[in-house]
Nucleic acid binder design. Structure first.
Lengths: 222, 222
DNA sequence: CAGGTTTCGTATCGATCACTATGGAAAATT
DNA sequence: AATTTTCCATAGTGATCGATACGAAACCTG
């Protein structure tokens, strides 16, 4: 329910906006917001400047559109892991393993657009940096919410800080993104995620231990 | 043995190159290589363009000088943790806790220059991106070397992959850097590091278990 | 067909980018 | 003091940045 194919007269577009947006998204993903010039976009999208500006208003709007598209098409399924009807630990495992795959897809730039898109920017692009930070914080909040749900379900120790664990898990995903940028393979990232998940068992034990008994180990391996 | 204070005649400099380099480093740290313009540098360093170019050749050289200075003055002590005469687990703990502190110093930009400096760049700045990747890989290699030493000393299971554990630990540090950028406090990062280190015990146990005995636990909670 | 509307291609716009030419001023060397 | 050497400040270089003005072309509605 948006402006679908409703063209109210006038000369029709000579290009596919979706395909153009896709090309722009990949370019932003690879080079980041500021380092992606209009000349590069023009070439990759196969369009002239007026075509780009008529269809997407300006560079900033184009980037935001690319972010939304990335969110839907490239990492949506990973975040969907948090909504899967599985135990919380399995949901987190699906999330991290999904990230390992999403950050190393053949033919795609390595890492996550929400990080590569802009980390340090010029003062003029501060709004873009803030927008990406919002996406990252939303991920962290979604993880924390899932952990909280698991905690209420009794799957996690009651005295565990879901905020801190969420910050750790989000941080691990960020680290995976940079490792992917630095050439890590999907297998490398899966191994990394596996070690990160090992912290899970240890952290559960620690929380349970500090709850009273010091050496009576609860269930550990997976 | 460099060009120390040896000025072979001519008009002396009217500014302190070290202080100027320091200002440039902080600006690059905050905004990254490409987003830091000469106009910004000029203002922060309090110099005119010819002064900058005469003292530092060009922007790229200035950035590399800033990287070296950052390496020495801001994160050197953290990497020194790897050379400390302590057990390997304690060395890693010192490293991560040092990073937590270095990434959140009051009055300094959050996170690590080796990440904020350039992650996604324009094709023209590819050499800079590669240089930063080299620094990051050097960190990973140093961690792997320390782990290998600990393994030889019998402090780590013989069948443990030090490369994978090093990649995990480096990834955690990268994640901490981004979390710091997103506003995480030193305490937040210490908590994150604490959870990451909990993975340590779990990973040790996993490796030891797969080595034969399934329930004879090696030393865990230090 | 005429009128209205939208996009097209071409050729730029002013601003900012990293960088430097020029010439005089200041200090060390002779 | 004369010469040499280096740095200073002013001003401006060509290139590229994101974004547009313009008029012709292509569609819809009457």
């Amino acid at each position: 329910m948006e402006n679908s194919e409703k063209s109210r007269g006038g000369r029709p577009r000579a290009f596919d906006p979706e395909a153009a947006l896709d090309a722009a998204m990949h370019l932003f993903w690879e080079h980041g917001y500021e380092a992606t010039s209009l000349a590069m976009l023009r070439k990759a999208m196969g369009l002239t400047p007026p075509q780009i500006y008529n269809a997407f208003t300006d560079k900033e709007t184009l980037f935001r559109r690319a972010l939304a598209r990335y969110h839907e098409r490239e990492v949506g399924f990973a975040l969907d892991a948090l909504g899967a009807p599985v135990p919380v630990k399995e949901a987190i495992r699906l999330l991290l393993m999904g990230a390992a795959e999403a950050y190393t897809r053949p033919g795609k730039p390595g890492g996550c657009l929400f990080i590569s898109g802009a980390l340090a920017t010029s003062p003029q692009a501060q709004a873009i940096a803030d927008e990406l930070k919002t996406y990252r914080k939303a991920t962290e909040a979604a993880i924390a919410a899932r952990l909280g749900k698991g905690q209420e379900a009794g799957e996690l120790p009651a005295n565990l800080s879901v905020e801190r664990l969420a910050k750790y898990l989000t941080g691990v995903m960020h680290g995976m993104s940079i490792q992917a940028r630095d050439g890590a393979s999907a297998e490398d990232l899966r191994a990394l995620a596996g070690i990160a998940l090992a912290a899970w068992a240890a952290e559960m034990r620690k929380a349970a231990d500090s709850n009273g008994e010091t050496d009576a180990r609860p269930v550990l391996h997976d």
